[in-house]
Structures are given as structure tokens and as C-alpha cells.
Amino acid sequence: MFTLRRLAIALPTLFIIATASFFLMRAAPGGPFDAEADLEPAVLENIRAAYDLDKPLLEQYWIYLTNALSGDFGPSLVYKDFGVNELIAIGLPISAKLGLLAMIVALLLGGLCGIIAALRQNGIIDHIIMALAMTGIAIPSFVTAPILVLFFGLYLKLLPVAGWNDGAPANMVLPIIALALPQIAIIARLMRGGMLEVLQSNFVRTARAKGLRESHVILRHVMQTAAIPLVGYLGPALAGIMTGSLVIELIFNLPGVGRYFVQGALNRDYPLVMGVVVIYGALIIALNLLSDLAYAALDPRVRRGYR
């Protein structure tokens, strides 16, 4: 029931995303063929007609919507001979691999840092972790990425500075770290907050009054409850990583969807941008739904329809 209701909201949301991105793209000044030097007016007319760009705006919107519904996002205006679907099919696996690995790294490292900080509350380790976390949240990834490249790539010469190299592990390390850093910071703070709140709750006192070892108290009584707010954050975290990847892929010159999106936007490649927006929108909605379901799985009060 819960799932059905969420699905019913997802479709209209996606429709609004598609519509807004269409009209916003068209409202932006310039056009897809501005960069091509000195086209004859007649030639330009022919090209525009070939892509239906000469038709009234509302009719173009209709064509775009009906095609999109059948799963076709049309041809790219800039990458000649490529359809938007093909470009996304090439880029998405790469972006997904990066994003998923970054998410896993963020959860493991962020969760661990948060737990350690909470168990050492107000100690030196806690202060160091929290100071680092504040820094991680404050500095955007387009700043950390070049710094990482400078240090590990150019100065230490440990890792390649950019490129995909068919997904060689060494090439993925820096992009994943740059993507994960802000999420590690946010997750560490969430996990610490959740742990601290739970640690001083009455049921932890009960668990200690039962004579359970502290490790058992933490693992069985504290962690599951403390992780609940974290699971609720998974959806937004994935959205953050996906939007972060737009910039990161450009900086590291990775052939993912993000790079197509940024270049598509700069080139006014209307179908490409809208295709990526709709796919990303659908993914973010789906992942948020998954995160809510995980939340229900972890909290019996939600699962059994209490409250």
C-alpha cells in the first residue's frame, strides 16, 4: 500500500520534470548550431527542419513527449549519427559504477567515523573527525577534485590525473574519493548524532542493567536504532552523488552520462539534455523509493504501520 502510493506520486513528478526541462532548455538563449561557422541560411533551415525545430514550440513538445513515452529520446544534435539513447547506454554503466562505489565508500567510511566519534564523544578523536567532517561539507567537490589531482596525481605521482582507461581501478580511485568525500562527512555527522541520542536513551540503560557486555549493547541495541536516520538519508545521498558526478566526470574526463549532460547543456543539445534529465529524475525517484522501503525494513514501527 505504502509502495503503491509512492509509485502513484512518482509518475506525475517525472512528467513535471520532463516538461520543466523542455521549456527551460528552450528558454535559454542560443541554439544547437550556433557553434558551426557561417552556415548558409538555407542550409540552417534544412537542418532545423530535419530535427523538427521549425515547428511551433507546443508541437515540438508534443513530439518529444510522445517519443519519450515510447522510450525514444531522439537524436543528439551535436554527436552526429548518435541517438540520445545510445549515448546514455554508453555513459550510464560508467556513471552507475562510479556512483555506486562512491556510495558504498561513503557509507562504510562515514558510518565508521560516526560510530568512533560517538563512542569517543568530546575526546580528541571525536573533535578531529568532526572538524574534518565540517571541512568535507563546506568544500565543494569541484575544489577537492583538483586538489586531489594535484597532490596524488602530479605531486606524489601515485594515481593517474584523469581518464577512464577502460575502468582501470587506479583511474577510479580519485573520482570516487572526490564524489564520496562530502557524503562521508554528512553520513559521519548523522551517524554520530544518531548514536549519541540512542546511547543516552533509557533502553540502553536497561540493556546495561541486564549485565550485557558493552560490545553487545552497542551492536545489538544501539546500532540498528542509530542507523535509522541514516537509511532515510540514503535517497538524498544518492541524489547528491549523482549531481556531483556531473562535475566530477568533466574534471576527470570520464565518459559517463554526466559529461554528456554538461556538454549537451553548453551546446544546447536539447534532446540529449532532456534525455539525461528524465533518466536521472527517474533514477533519483526510484532510489528514494528504495531508501524508504529500507527504512521500513529497519524500523518495525514503520513496517507494522504504527504511527
Binding site: F203, A209, G211, P300
Partner: peptide, 24 residues
């Protein structure tokens, strides 16, 4: 303490809703 608490010395707390682990 852990050998005695919950074993030889039992304690009942006031608020049993917040006193029992909600996820267990």
C-alpha cells in the same frame, strides 16, 4: 558489575516504553 547486574541484581525502570529497545 556485568556478572551481577541482570543476574543477581535486577532492576525495573519507570518508563517501559522508552526502557525497552524499540527495534528488538
Amino acid at each position: 558489575l556485568d556478572e551481577l547486574r541482570g543476574n543477581r541484581l535486577g532492576m525495573v525502570f519507570q518508563d517501559a516504553l522508552s526502557g525497552l529497545t524499540p527495534t528488538m
